[in-house]
């Protein structure tokens, strides 16, 4: 589902920083992979490349059989909209919009009427157990609920790929655990391929494999004890 072939990403002109250095790995459909490593190891760069927000300096990034380098910006954006859901550590919800408006936003950007978009967004919020918070704005709900809104927004198109950047990083441990459990449930239900950047070993344990990075290089790829779909 996701394949990185000898991917390098350099930053800067004079003092070049190698964010990624010849990275090779593949994530199968329905598989969940945690990306771990110290700060600056290239974890977020991998996510940015996979969702098409960044371009590799060398190598290929292939998502769902499509080489992203072959797509222009609009095509990548459409791919992101329809095939890739994104969850951020800082939630990245629009502060002036209610939960339902935030979740329906991708649908509306896709041309759906507000009514129809909100009908589907409401159902998705029900699925993340936020049925009673539809009209609340981000500042009116807890951190965990904010992340659930973000998850609902990421999954509104039922994308085959979910990218999560430290989804529990801003949450306390019990709320973090709730979110991970929710992701497990949704994975079981939708069989989404997930790439999750995390510092947290417990969060990583919810994934099938762990990709370890250091200084932009893959230093370990551990196989999962449990088959895909059996989250712990």
């Amino acid at each position: 589902m996701i394949r990185l072939e000898k991917v390098s990403r350099d930053y800067g002109e004079n003092k070049v920083v190698h964010a990624l250095d010849h990275v090779d790995f593949e994530v199968s459909r329905g598989e969940r992979v945690a990306v771990m490593g110290p700060s600056g190891s290239g974890k977020s760069t991998i996510l940015n490349l996979v969702c098409g927000l960044d371009d590799p300096t060398a190598g290929k990034v292939i998502v769902d059989g499509v080489n992203l380098a072959a797509l222009d910006d609009d095509a990548r954006t459409r791919l992101r909209r329809e095939k890739i859901g994104m969850i951020f550590q800082t939630f990245n919800l629009l502060p002036t919009m209610s939960a339902i408006e935030n979740v329906s936003l991708p649908l509306r950007l896709n041309g759906l009427s507000k009514k129809e978009a909100e009908l589907r967004a409401g159902a998705m919020l029900e699925r993340v157990r936020l049925g009673s918070r539809l009209d609340h704005r981000p500042d009116e709900v807890s951190g965990g609920e904010r992340q659930r809104i973000a998850i609902a927004r990421a999954l509104i198109f039922s994308p085959p790929v979910l990218l999560a950047d430290e989804p529990t990083g801003n949450l306390d441990s019990s709320t973090g655990e709730e979110i991970l459990a929710l992701l497990d449930d949704l994975h079981r239900e939708l069989n989404t391929t997930m790439l999750m950047v995390t510092h947290n070993e417990e969060a990583a344990a919810h994934c099938d494999r762990i990709l370890r990075l250091r200084d932009g290089r893959v230093v370990g790829l551990t196989g999962a004890a449990l088959p895909a779909g059996e989250g712990r």
Partner: peptide, 9 residues
């Protein structure tokens, strides 16, 4: 965020 969740330029 709008761009990240699929808003075209």
């Amino acid at each position: 965020v709008l761009r990240a969740i699929g808003g075209l330029r």
